[in-house]
Design a binder for these strands. Structure first.
Lengths: 294, 294
DNA sequence: TTGTCGGGTGGCACAGAGTGCCATACGGTA
DNA sequence: TACCGTATGGCACTCTGTGCCACCCGACAA
């Protein structure tokens, strides 16, 4: 049984596997933000062991990054990475599932954080806005270490293996979002539910595509500027351009202004009245809102 | 002139590499549908050699598929595949870049066909419709061999490696579409060009997401029914739901009905009047249209 | 102090993917 | 018959990833 080493971890995040291609090694534990594993009483020794473990992982990731940047990805062997970090080759594979993963050490943690964002969302928030907050969490992961992100971007552009790996990672977020939207679209909508799964998938992919675009532009620019703001702007653009069907929540910029449009239905016609100081996007949004309630 | 570099194409589709993760072996040649490699005078012997080559490739793919289906992907070695196909292990890697690729033998050819669809598109066709025709080409690849597609789907669901590979393959189509849209959005639009790259990327991802959704639903249903029609319906849905900003070409179903809403701007307010027999989506669309012209 | 228990580590061995290299076979051509 | 280009077979080799076992070390109890 190949899972012998794996058998330990009783219930750790049974929901979605942290796997990104292979099974996780037994001792592999994504650095859970608040997920104290219940059976671990968080003793002083346990805490120190975790810190030590985290330190080794960081060292390995740093060594890998440095070697990849100087020698190139293919030309760097796991032995070299381990040697540079001062551990044995076998230890490397106890911290990372593969050589590729050493360059994306944060996706697993981020996936957990994004899931937490979705789980703890205010039920009154529009699901699409929740998802936007979720992908923003991903963006922050990159934005927190601009230099490393830029260097990693350079690598992913020239090493197909790494590019595919990152594409797969992002696809994991997208699946999270699709599932979330699928489970939150039914409430309070008279849409014909037959197309809801389609819309959920398309919407999730649109949000992720916006993130990808903003992120790549930021990375190409060398990691300068406020990405998060740029992402918000991208959300506004896609909402106002073809975001009338869904995404009526959180009005972006002029959130404090009163409802810019009202609606009345009389006989054969529907009449909508809107203030001209509101943007076309806002007018559309609130007309849609009114139509939805009608 | 975006078509300049594209018009050339004297040699083998220099635009995009057929690579899907590694470099292609020297002798690897995707089976170009009409791309006669100019220097190959298409002799009788050459034709027979190509046919022979294609035959070996088919045999290998069939053997791989069968072994994967019975033994599982991980448990099957390349040696076994080669043995079953009656060739040497080394020959396998002359036909496929990797073990995974043996299960997706058609993506490279399809990528070429999709590119051909884009290149030969009527310039008067809306770019989004062109892209929709492009992704339809991909769908056809699956639809032409339903049983195999269904079986492959089963495998990709349970083998993470294969799932990631397929995700990466689809991402290649998406990049094609993004580039195409980016090069065809400027013409005849008064959109602020700053957001065009964003919209191109989001639109491409939406089209691909629709394809993915329809395809998976069809696969889950066992490969029964007219997928292509379902895909067209999905296009209609996303166009009518939030497809007002772009994709104004070929209006889907009720294209013949008169404008369902009119708009007048008077002093401080905008008044929109719409027929109640029109769907909310249609009302929104035409209001937006009117707002855009105002 | 001693025993022992558990988690992290080092080192070894092994299977398998993917590649370089060279010899060989086959078909077409001079 | 000799030559040539191409596909193949086979060998050797590197590297990734995993199973297995011995070892170390801090914690805890007798």
């Amino acid at each position: 049984m190949p899972g012998a080493e794996r058998a330990a971890r009783p219930v750790g995040w049974g929901g979605f596997p942290p796997a990104t291609g292979r099974e996780a090694p037994a001792c592999y534990v994504p650095h859970m933000p608040q997920a104290v594993n219940s059976d671990a009483p968080e003793t002083a020794s346990g805490r120190r062991a975790a810190a030590q473990r985290h330190r080794v992982r960081q060292d390995l990731a740093a060594a890998a990054m440095q070697l990849f940047a100087t020698q190139g990805y293919e030309a760097t062997t796991v032995d070299e990475i381990a040697a540079k970090a001062g551990v044995a080759r076998r230890t490397f594979f106890r911290h990372f599932r593969s050589k590729e993963e050493a360059i994306f050490p944060d996706h697993d943690d981020t996936l957990v954080r994004v899931q937490a964002v979705l789980d703890s969302a205010d039920p009154r928030e529009h699901p699409l806005d929740t998802v936007c907050r979720g992908i923003t969490e991903v963006l922050r992961m990159y934005a927190q270490v601009p230099e490393m992100s830029v260097e990693r971007y350079r690598l992913t552009r020239e090493v197909p293996t790494l590019r595919e790996r990152e594409i797969a990672s992002v696809a994991r977020y997208e699946r999270l979002f699709t599932r979330y939207l699928l489970g939150h679209f039914d409430e309070g909508a008279q849409r014909d539910g037959d197309d809801d799964p389609l819309l959920a998938e398309v919407a999730a992919s649109a949000v992720v595509a916006a993130h990808n675009h903003v992120l790549r532009r930021w990375l190409r620019a060398g990691g300068k500027g406020d990405v998060e703001q740029q992402l918000d702007h991208a959300f506004d653009v896609i909402k106002s351009t073809f975001g009338t069907g869904i995404g009526a929540g959180r009005i972006p910029s002029r959130a404090t202004s009163p409802t810019p449009a009202t609606l009345s239905r009389q006989g054969e016609v529907v009449v909508a009245v809107a203030r001209t100081d509101a943007s076309p996007a806002e007018i559309l949004r609130s007309i849609e809102e009114a139509l939805r309630q009608a």
